[in-house]
Amino acid sequence: MITSVKTAAKNELEGLDGLKTEPFSRRGFVMTGLVSGFTLATTVVHGQTINTDSKGLVAGEVKIPTADGELPSYRAMPEGAGPFPIILVVEEIFGVHEYIKDICRRLAKLGYCAVAPELYARLGDLSKMTDAQVIVRDVISKAPDATVLSDLDATAKWAAASSKGDAARLGVTGFCRGGRAVWLYAAHNPQLKAAVAWYGPLGGNPTAIQPKTAADVVGDLKAPVLGLYGAADTGIPVASVEKQRDAAKAAGKTVEIVIFPDTPHGFHADYRPSYRKAQAEDGWARMLAWFKRYGVA
């Protein structure tokens, strides 16, 4: 599993707020709708996938207004008056496909308004891409962090205004590359109550449009972060995870790191061979407890 994009480019930009977004070479959104079913870019183990129904929910594809168009997204929330606490769900590199949609429905069943924006819609049609390395090279590496953060802000604003969401109870969770975005967003949005990063990459080589790693922003965190990692993750060394924990402690930030023994990257992804049921369920329970402890639930 690819966890970072290697590049020789360096930069001298400071901070995350106020960055200029690199202009896109194409007008509009390449991806105007979400992935149907599961991603084509990885092996799917259908026998173990979790399928959460939408009974009692308002669930489906929505369009979120941004400065340059409408962002295709998936929203699930309970039926009823609300207001509901908001959880931003940040995708892996494979798009908002059935696994990410199901996570939204799982959270909605627990009383949350969960929204997953398709953050790479401007850059490529992930519904048709079959090679993870090509996705990283042609899409992920070309997504400016400033745009990702702006889109998450727009999603939170939309959820509060249009989906009975409670802006005062805002949380975020994300998986793999989405876990990296969780760290960045926790350093970006002072209104965020709590964040949970599932095996989010911590290092990497900065570029002009992705100027900070998760490790770089640990001292700027504005919300408590729970990091869930696997000791057998070949792309995220345990030493780097422990370093992140120690740096957060030194900076006086509220960060809890859990490292599951003998556990690979992607252990929550129930559609992939990397899935580990016990660790996934343990991490999920810890995530819910984290959100409750810090005022999202």
Rank of each mutant, 00 (worst) to 15 (best):
G230L: 06
G203H: 05
E242F: 00
D262H: 03
A223F: 06
T147P: 11
G235K: 07
K243D: 06
P206L: 10
H268N: 13
A146R: 14
A146E: 11
A232Q: 13
D220P: 07
D246Q: 01
H188R: 07
I209Y: 01
V241R: 00
I236T: 03
K222N: 11
V196M: 01
S150P: 03
N189D: 12
P206Y: 10
R272G: 13
N205P: 00
H265T: 01
T213K: 05
A143Y: 03
H268R: 10
D216G: 13
T234E: 14
D153I: 13
A132P: 15
V258P: 00
P261T: 08
T254C: 05
D246L: 01
A251M: 00
G171V: 13
Y229R: 09
Q191A: 15
G174C: 04
T173N: 10
A159P: 14
P206C: 14
K253S: 00
Q210G: 03
P237E: 06
A232I: 09
W183M: 15
D145W: 14
R272W: 06
V139D: 14
P211Q: 09
F175C: 11
V255N: 01
V238K: 01
D246M: 00
G171T: 07
K193D: 01
A208M: 03
F267A: 00
S240N: 12
T155M: 10
A250P: 06
A232Y: 11
A168Q: 14
D270A: 04
V218K: 09
A223S: 10
E256N: 02
K243N: 03
H188Y: 09
P144H: 05
A181F: 12
S163T: 13
T263A: 05
D246F: 00
A194C: 07
G165D: 06
A143R: 10
P261N: 08
W198N: 04
G203M: 12
A232W: 11
G227I: 05
N205I: 09
T173R: 08
V134M: 07
D262W: 04
E242A: 03
D151S: 12
G266R: 04
T147I: 09
A160K: 12
S162E: 15
A232M: 03
V172A: 08
A156K: 12
A167G: 11
G203V: 08
K164G: 07
A181W: 12
G171N: 08
T207R: 05
V148Q: 14
A208Q: 06
D145Y: 14
S163Q: 15
A187C: 02
L202N: 02
H188V: 02
L184R: 06
T147Q: 15
V238E: 05
P211V: 03
K142V: 10
M129L: 15
K157G: 14
S150Y: 13
D233Q: 02
D246I: 00
S141D: 15
Y185N: 11
A214C: 14
L228Q: 12
P273M: 09
L184D: 03
A161F: 02
K128R: 12
G171F: 07
P201Y: 06
V148S: 10
T130I: 08
T263M: 01
P206T: 07
P201I: 10
Y271P: 08
L202R: 11
S127E: 06
W198E: 07
A167I: 07
